[in-house]
C-alpha cells in the first residue's frame, strides 16, 4: 500500500476480534483482527493480494512480520497465525478479544494471480508457513475466482496431526469436488488416514503434472530446499515454481536493510519469487 505522505511506520489501529489456538500444543495461535476505522478497512482491502504480509505491533513490545491468512471476501477482518517464539509473538499470544493491536500493511507483492489465470495450481505447504497458502486457497474458492483457474491441488504437511492448522476447513476441503487435497505428517499416528512422510517425498508420490501448471511452495527452509528440486524433476520449469521467502524484518518497506537477497528486498520486492528469479540471486538465505 503506497503511503502517500503518511508515515510507513505508523500502524493501522486494530483490535482483536477472535483469538484461538490453532495447534494442540498451543504453539500456534490465530488472531482475527478488525479495523478501528472503516476507512482503513477499505484502503486495506483495495490494496490486498493473497501472499502479502503485515507487521503486527504490540505497543511496548515491538513488531513481528506475519503472512495474512485470510481472503478479502471472508469479511472486514484480517487473520494471522503466529508461532510463539520471541517476545512479540509471546505478547501476541497473550492478546484477548477487544485488545488493541497495530498493523502495518499489506506489504510485499503477494502471489501473481493475474499471471496464473487459466493454469492448474499446485499448492505445497509445510508447517505454519501454510498460512498465506491458506489465504490463497480461500481466495480461489470464491465462486467469482474459482473459474479463472484450472485444477487445484493442495499438499500440506506438518510434523504431527496436532500441528495441522485450519483443521475444520481442511477437513471440508476433502469433500469438495473442485480440488484435490493431500495431507501429510512426518511420523505415523493412529487413525491417520493420509500420507506419512516429508513433503518433498509426498510431492514425488502425488506427482502433480507440470502441464499448464504452476507450483507454489511455502514451508520451512529445509522443506523448500528439497521440494524445489523435486518439482524441477517432475518437469516444472523454474518460471512456474514460486515460493515465498522470509528473513528478519524491521521496516517492511525496503529501508532498514536486513532482508536483502542481493539487490532485492524480500519485504518490498518479494516475499514471493519464482525459482527463475531466485536462481539469479545470491544464495544468502
Amino acid at each position: 500500500m503506497p503511503n502517500e505522505g503518511r508515515s510507513p511506520y505508523l500502524p493501522i489501529p486494530m483490535h482483536v476480534l477472535h483469538a484461538y489456538y490453532e495447534s494442540t500444543d498451543n504453539s500456534l495461535k490465530t488472531l482475527e483482527l478488525s479495523f478501528d476505522d472503516p476507512q482503513d478497512a477499505r484502503e486495506f482491502f483495495a490494496a490486498f493480494n493473497p501472499g502479502q504480509f503485515c507487521l503486527l505491533s504490540v505497543i511496548g513490545k515491538g513488531e513481528s512480520a506475519l503472512g495474512v491468512a485470510s481472503a478479502a471476501w471472508e469479511g472486514d477482518f484480517v487473520r494471522f497465525t503466529a508461532q510463539k517464539l520471541g517476545s512479540v509473538t509471546t505478547a501476541l499470544h497473550a492478546l484477548k478479544p477487544g485488545d488493541p493491536v497495530g498493523m502495518r500493511g499489506p506489504l510485499g507483492n503477494g502471489f501473481p494471480l493475474a499471471e496464473w489465470k487459466g493454469k492448474n495450481l499446485v499448492i505445497i505447504g509445510g508447517g505454519c508457513a501454510f498460512s498465506t497458502l491458506y489465504a490463497l486457497t480461500k481466495h480461489l474458492h470464491h465462486p467469482s475466482h474459482r473459474g479463472d483457474y484450472g485444477k487445484l491441488t493442495v499438499i500440506y504437511g506438518t510434523r504431527t496431526s496436532g500441528l495441522c492448522m485450519y483443521k475444520q476447513d481442511i477437513a471440508a476441503w476433502h469433500q469438495r469436488d473442485d480440488m484435490e487435497v493431500h495431507q501429510a505428517i512426518d511420523v505415523p499416528e493412529q487413525n491417520w488416514l493420509h500420507h506419512v512422510g516429508y513433503v518433498p517425498d509426498v510431492v514425488k508420490e502425488v506427482r502433480p503434472s507440470p502441464v499448464n501448471s504452476v507450483a507454489v511452495v511455502c514451508g520451512p527452509p529445509i522443506m523448500t530446499k528439497f521440494t524445489l528440486p523435486a518439482l524441477v524433476e517432475l518437469g516444472f520449469a523454474p518460471e512456474t515454481i514460486f515460493t515465498s521467502l522470509e528473513k528478519r524484518m524491521k521496516c517492511g518497506v525496503g529501508k532498514c536493510g536486513r532482508c536483502n537477497l542481493g539487490p532485492k528486498y524480500i519485504c518490498k520486492d518479494g516475499p514471493v519469487f519464482s525459482l527463475a528469479e531466485l536462481n539469479a540471486l545470491p544464495a544468502d538465505l
Binding site: Y9, S57, I59, G60, K61, G62, E63, K247, R248, K250, C251, K255, C256, G257, R258
Partner: peptide, 26 residues
C-alpha cells in the same frame, strides 16, 4: 540500515542505526 525497537519505559518506538556487521542484525 536501522533497527526498530520499542523502548517501553520511554514510551517510544525508536529507530537506531544498525549494521550488517552484527550477528543479531539478521
Amino acid at each position: 540500515c536501522f533497527d526498530i525497537v520499542d523502548e517501553a519505559q520511554r514510551g517510544e518506538r525508536v529507530r537506531n542505526w544498525d549494521t550488517c556487521m552484527f550477528r543479531t542484525y539478521s
